[in-house]
Simulated assay, not measured.
Amino acid sequence: MTETMLAGRLDVRAKTFAVEEVPVPEPGPGQVRIRVKAAGVCLSDVHLIDGSIRPLFLPADKVTLGHEVSGVVDALGPDVPPAWTAGQRVLLQAGERCGRCANCVSFAEPCLQVRTRGVDYDGGWAEYALATHHTLVAVPDDLPFEQAAVIPDAVSTPWAAIVSTGKAAPARPAGVWGVGGLGTHAVQLLRLVGAVPIIAIDPIEAARERASALGADAVLDSAAPDLRERIRELTAGRGLDLALDMAGAPAVREQAVSCLAPGGRLVLVGLTPDPLTITQSIPLSYFAQQILGHYGSTPEHVVELVELVRHGRLDLGGSISGTLPLTEAAAAVERLARKEGDPVRLILTP
């Protein structure tokens, strides 16, 4: 009789989600099976379930959700390097190279069609998950699994947006729109690179208070009629060198563009299927401003963050807003969708 496990499965076509019993996967060549210890619940998961985000490369109608995953190496398939052994504590990169695009064929960077775990192939809302060995990252013994799980995406996505796409610089002003799962970490990470002032913008008072406690130099309500003027005052009349849209909301993007300095950059991190419109586009051209798309991070960003945590430069202790058993995955999704308790990250524990 085939051994089975529980997994949180999304039927993409029917837009239905359920925790189901499925076979425990067997690792193939180059693969490792992980006993999952913690898996994050992301707003992207909410949007996958409601159908506003759809997988681009999923070969079937169903997928196990979960792209933020940590656990213990349980079994190894053939051709896995000896560096990996059963019992090791690891987190999983949130995706991997496609192996088919022109850059993958020529061993160039970056992959042009990255596959996302828990979107384009089965993820970690399960008791066990498969991972290609090169997507494993060892984590220190003193890093809790719950915190390790959220490094891919919840922390690495804003980190990559800040240091790579957004090119944040020391002593230059930066604004963060939306201080939830991504924006909370963006405030912490902007402090690491020395951005100043850091201005956090959110309509929820609790989110603003959290941003202030984490080191934002100023917190503003996005509904304030004088928001643009306040940001100009805080930046000595110049505006923002870097604006980060962590909310994925059209109104945020219009607002953020109006607050940019000459040469300033708006980085779109939060995902939305809604159109991108800029009502006043002439100033965008005149002041040589930029709007930049951003998705995820590279493996190097995750490794950097593990090192920052290991050496005490980054504290993720406040990132976990609650844990629920895997059997209550649907309830976790509902809590996040309603923003119940203003969570940073909810964690599923099989």
Rank of each mutant, 00 (worst) to 15 (best):
T135S: 05
A211K: 07
V114N: 00
P25C: 05
V309I: 11
E229D: 14
A169F: 06
T157M: 00
T349G: 01
E233H: 13
D61P: 02
A168P: 07
V344P: 03
P152A: 02
V46Q: 10
L92W: 00
V80A: 04
G71F: 10
S212E: 14
V73H: 09
D74I: 03
G318Y: 02
I291G: 04
G317F: 11
P81N: 01
I231G: 07
M246Q: 08
V267I: 09
L58N: 05
D315I: 08
A75C: 08
R313W: 09
E304P: 00
S212H: 15
P299N: 09
S222I: 09
D217N: 12
H47V: 00
G166E: 07
L48N: 09
W177G: 05
F107A: 14
V155N: 08
V22E: 11
P250Y: 04
A171Q: 13
L6C: 08
L58W: 07
I204L: 15
H47F: 02
P262V: 01
V252P: 05
K167D: 14
V63S: 07
P25V: 04
S52T: 15
V114W: 00
C104M: 10
A126H: 10
V309E: 01
Q113S: 15
G317C: 10
E209G: 11
L220R: 12
